[in-house]
C-alpha cells in the first residue's frame, strides 16, 4: 500500500537544475511552467461544452 501512494518519481536525491547563462532553474519548476503553458494553450483551443438553451 505505501508503494501505491508514494511519489511517482523518486524525490530522495538532490534537485536537478538547468543553466542558461545567469539563469538557473530547477527541473521541477521548469516542468510546472511547461504544464502551465500547455494548459493555457488547451484552454484557448478546446471547445467549451454548452448546456441547455436558457428560457427567458
Amino acid at each position: 500500500m505505501p508503494a501505491l501512494v508514494a511519489a511517482l518519481i523518486n524525490l530522495s536525491h538532490p534537485g536537478r537544475y538547468v543553466h542558461w547563462g545567469f539563469i538557473q532553474l530547477s527541473v521541477a519548476n521548469l516542468v510546472v511552467i511547461a504544464l502551465m503553458i500547455l494548459v493555457f494553450v488547451l484552454a484557448i483551443a478546446l471547445p467549451f461544452p454548452h448546456g441547455k438553451r436558457a428560457r427567458r
Binding site: 483551443a45 471547445p47 461544452p49 454548452h50 448546456g51 441547455k52 438553451r53
Partner: peptide, 12 residues
C-alpha cells in the same frame, strides 16, 4: 464554444 469560434449563445 471557444473565443472567436462562431456558434449561437446557449445555456447560462
Amino acid at each position: 464554444p471557444g473565443v472567436g469560434q462562431g456558434a449561437p449563445a446557449a445555456g447560462l
